[in-house]
Design a protein around this nucleic acid. Sequence first.
DNA 1: GATCCCGTTGCAACATGTGCAACACCCATT
DNA 2: AATGGGTGTTGCACATGTTGCAACGGGATC
Lengths: 271, 271
Amino acid sequence: MSQTVDRALSILPLLAQGPADLGQVAARLDVHKSTALRLLRTLHEHGLVYRQQDQRYRLGARLFALAQEAVESLDVREIAHPHLVSLGEQCGHTVHLAVIEDSEVLYIDKVESRYPVRMYSRIGKPVAVTVAAVAKLLIADLSEAERRALAERLDFPMYTPRSIPNAAAFLKELATVREQGWATDLGGHEESINCIGAPIRGTDGRVVAAMSVSAPNVVVTADELLALLPLLRRTADAISREYSGNAHQPAPVAVPAPAPPAPPVLQKEIS
Amino acid sequence: MSQTVDRALSILPLLAQGPADLGQVAARLDVHKSTALRLLRTLHEHGLVYRQQDQRYRLGARLFALAQEAVESLDVREIAHPHLVSLGEQCGHTVHLAVIEDSEVLYIDKVESRYPVRMYSRIGKPVAVTVAAVAKLLIADLSEAERRALAERLDFPMYTPRSIPNAAAFLKELATVREQGWATDLGGHEESINCIGAPIRGTDGRVVAAMSVSAPNVVVTADELLALLPLLRRTADAISREYSGNAHQPAPVAVPAPAPPAPPVLQKEIS
DNA sequence: GATCCCGTTGCAACATGTGCAACACCCATT
DNA sequence: AATGGGTGTTGCACATGTTGCAACGGGATC
């Protein structure tokens, strides 16, 4: 809608692939160098891009800070987190929390018992939307029209022989999920990994998030994992209740918005 | 430099504080509603903002994905990570890796032994630049002019009585750090927490990153922590060597840039 | 059913962003 | 040293894209 902004924002995914110099950016955007320069300067002023010593541009630090603040102000996540931790301790497997946004599903929290390292690398990554248990739950809650439209639009990559192969099968699976109120992914993404998932609902009953427990079948069989369903669903329901309980905000103060209440400091800095 | 882009980007930090509706955004930007609408639409198309059910705008998912890709393509981080893990295992304390960008210092990796939970919440957060050991190291490597300019510009919040109080003391500390090649923060940020840090250098000898070991003094005294300095410095030097070793890239293919080599897939998706 | 509030659209006036060409700079080459 | 190709950078005139307005629509609330 706005050409200038559109061009400027197109630079970001471009730089996400790796550093680029002015000429490369201009070429990819198909604009004059001077134009690219001005756009990059503006992005730079806002800290979204950074210029390294060799003069090439990279994505900048502010991006992290923004992503941080965004994820921390998600109220579902705040509420769900202790429950995820508790569930993780009880069953010992990986626990995920995910939300849907437009047509993308993404993890917003994770608790992992055995491999603490590199945990953060998963948060924010787009989810394999055709097979993941959490994705099925979130999409199953859309209107029928939206589900159909989305199914038509999707690719159905065969990660494994058990991946959902096409739109028809996907819609059928969604119907099942919708009816039973929980979902699975039995080796549909990684041959050796099974997942079970349950929805978290808001006051109006709509699904606002989904959570799952994942485990490799060398540790527990699919059946053993399914035995955890009641525990998982109890946890999800507890989160739903707590989420529906609190009013989301104590009501904004005024329209000119004199700075909304700063998110509470949850953790202190260490140097 | 570009008014339109400038306005559009100003929306992001605004939304980072919490969701806002069209009117609020327009008011804060001091532009007409229709203008704000067009900007928000453009941001939305690029996935940087998301419109929730109540029509209010939030920061969007693409932001996470971008931040992810950015941090994963930092070559220092790739190289340093296994060393950080190894150091963490040896000493049992928290290990950080940080870089400087313009005048901001930020953590890009972290290994923590005892509290695996919420690890990701730290990555990307701006560092307390006047007291953190890693910040001292990174700033100490700037030119004298840059150091002076930065010192003048900074605030010196007294987190604790041992925080560095003013520009003069800061510059003095930087001189010391510069000379000795390592840095400390003994209770300057959190009364009970001590840190030691060491620089990671590129081929040209300039500091490209800094790492630190942090521990609360209820676990180890400052002296005991300082005893880890040789180990820390050996690790930092090993990273420096490895980093200087590899050419950063096998050379880009051409100017029209037919997609730079995709970052290697490091971890598979789970549902 | 009337009134308010908010998001949305089309349009004309104008400010803004644009491409060009020239300049400045760095570094390889000769 | 001097040349040449490769960058990034600046000033400027043109016109394109952006702006604010006013009017419309749709959903709540009274």
